[in-house]
Design a protein around this nucleic acid. Structure first.
Lengths: 348, 348
DNA sequence: CTGAAAGCGCTAACAG
DNA sequence: CTGTTAGCGCTTTCAG
């Protein structure tokens, strides 16, 4: 694994066996002090053009790249952010991740990714991990922890919550106006003469499913659509969860004409169950999802669903976090609400 | 934003406004030296049970969490790894990401994620970024850079390549035996009496598409199946790419009876094109994908495809990287090859 | 325009 | 069993 047999240090290609070069090496090579190298590179203090050139040359010859860990310790900023995602196997999230990543990478930030699976314990340990690593900010969609608990863990750190808010904010927020999309969905059902509808929600507790269910109930109530208690299910946000709930619901002696799901993945499971039961959609059963994942228009029947603007959510999170990092902890917390809307396809 | 009005430092709940507590604070509080605190916490040197208890208490009371940046600078390890993913919007990758993340998080590593979009410039800058941040290792699926170029950039760092190898290894590798899955796919076509087949590959160059195309050609040749040059397309790994290539292929005066695609996303685009052209699958056209993304069995017709074991790939990468981190740079490079196989569904 | 020295928060010799 | 000291690699006073 040796390359060329040059006799002394710091020559030739930067090979596998070379030691990492430090600012002191560059300084020595250019015949100046580390201080001057630092300033030549940062531009935070004037340096004579001649020495600047010598330094740049040395940097190049030696292949110097500053050690960001040392820099971070010194300047007390890491140019990194923690992004806690619930479940990356749900196609909704990668879209958010990508948008967050792109928005942050532009500004030189790197993303530390944590997966929480919506569990309180994981949320807490990952948050602490991020804090311990001195990230400059954190983005999280809380599924178990309350905003207050999260704020207590992260201290004064810039924090963006992907979450609807009830009561105190505790952090900047990005949220989607799920209610309007769901109201449109219920109106759509009503327009088709459907008077009885069920809902498959996510796990009980503080998941977005709970709020979506509430919105659904309210919209149905407003239109006089019946939502029997036995038509409500709580399952994990997974295809398996949707299948399981779907089986139960469809086996009911009196089952609803339509079922809305708290997300598309659950809806896919429900469609599996409908197929098992030999039902044909949307005639025997109308199904509406939530999120509009990329594949929603690939499945059969094409899924009627509420568009949850993943990329916009991610971009808004990135913007909000950068703003907070720049402005410091003292300004008032902001809330950005993104619209949702129904897209009519073939399942309802 | 102030909470309770306690008169002096380090009391009460750890609130938003509290300064971060350092090892020295704990030491003072417990009446010992920082060294002892460090050792009490790490266990790397015996500490009397009495002082240990006092320290633990102090840690608890003050809410001490060590500053990992400072620790990293000192011990020269960050317990972080860089994971460079090509395109997280392709559902194949999140599955890999998740497996990598889980395999690494278990051992206390955090993942810095970079998205390269397969571009050489992005690959290089992200790699340098990771190196500058002193990650303990890097996992990358190279799309533009050669293994040698990557090795030159990362120096002696533990490195795992998701990539088939031709010639020198330059790093530990995880690869999939695409050839066997593709051979099975071609046999499947042959069994159905198909004698003419095309292939939609990824971008020209060093993408996995190129190797898959070569395997396809070889397998077809072995069975006497015709693969005309005009039936070969190179497009981006996207649904749009598949659609575009599909339109061209299906508009040909003499088009093939079957088309295999370098990945499932392209196949989805091809199916879009087939639908546009009013063809019914698999009778008028047989389509085979590659990857078996989660949604492959959701689309209509259910996609016949080659299973690319995303989770196993991710898990293998994590294992290989951890092994290399532990064993140091000197052992021989390893190659782990994972099998692929055909799953027959409805599109071919 | 440039350098010396201090210090970010931690760990690990080296002493006792 | 415990403490003192040095130093990871960088930036930034402070002093020329």
């Amino acid at each position: 694994m040796k390359s060329s047999g040059m006799q002394i240090d710091m020559h030739g290609e930067e090979g596998v066996s070379m030691k990492r070069v430090h600012i002191g090496d560059v300084a020595a090579h250019a015949g100046v002090s580390p201080t001057t190298v630092s300033h030549a590179l940062s531009g935070r203090r004037p340096v004579s053009e001649a020495t600047r050139q010598r330094i740049l040359l040395a940097v190049d010859e030696l292949g110097y790249h500053p050690n960001l860990v040392a820099k971070s310790l010194r300047i007390q900023r890491t140019k990194s952010v923690g992004f806690l995602v619930v479940d990356i196997s749900n196609p909704y999230y990668p879209a958010v991740v990508q948008a967050v990543h792109d928005g942050l990478a532009d500004q030189g930030y790197v993303s530390l990714i944590g997966i929480t699976y919506g569990e309180a314990a994981a949320e807490e340990t990952v948050l602490r991990e991020m804090v311990a690593r001195n990230v400059d900010g954190i983005i999280i969609q809380p599924m178990s922890l309350t905003p207050a608990e999260i704020r207590r863990i992260v201290g004064p750190l810039p924090l963006v919550l992907i979450s609807d808010h009830e009561g105190e904010l505790h952090a900047d927020r990005v949220q989607t106006n799920d209610r309007e999309g769901i109201a449109a969905a219920v109106r759509h059902l009503n327009d088709h003469g459907i008077r009885e509808a069920g809902f498959i929600s996510g796990p009980e507790g503080r998941s977005p499913g709970t709020l979506r269910l509430a919105s659904f109930r309210a919209a149905a109530h407003a239109l006089g659509i019946t939502v029997a208690e036995e038509w409500i299910e709580h399952v994990p946000f997974s295809r398996a969860g949707g299948l399981e709930a779907g089986r139960r619901l469809l086996a009911l002696p009196h089952r609803p004409r339509a079922i809305m799901c708290a997300n598309d993945i659950i809806a896919v499971g429900l469609i599996d169950a409908a197929r098992e039961a030999g039902l044909s959609l949307p005639v025997d059963l109308a199904v509406i999802g939530f999120d509009d994942i990329d594949t929603a228009n690939l499945i059969t029947p094409h899924l009627t669903t509420v568009v949850n603007p993943a990329r916009e959510v991610g971009a808004a999170c990135a913007r909000a976090l950068l703003r907070r990092i720049e402005r410091g902890p003292d300004g008032a917390y902001t809330v950005e609400a993104l619209p949702t809307h129904l897209v009519r396809r073939d399942s309802a």
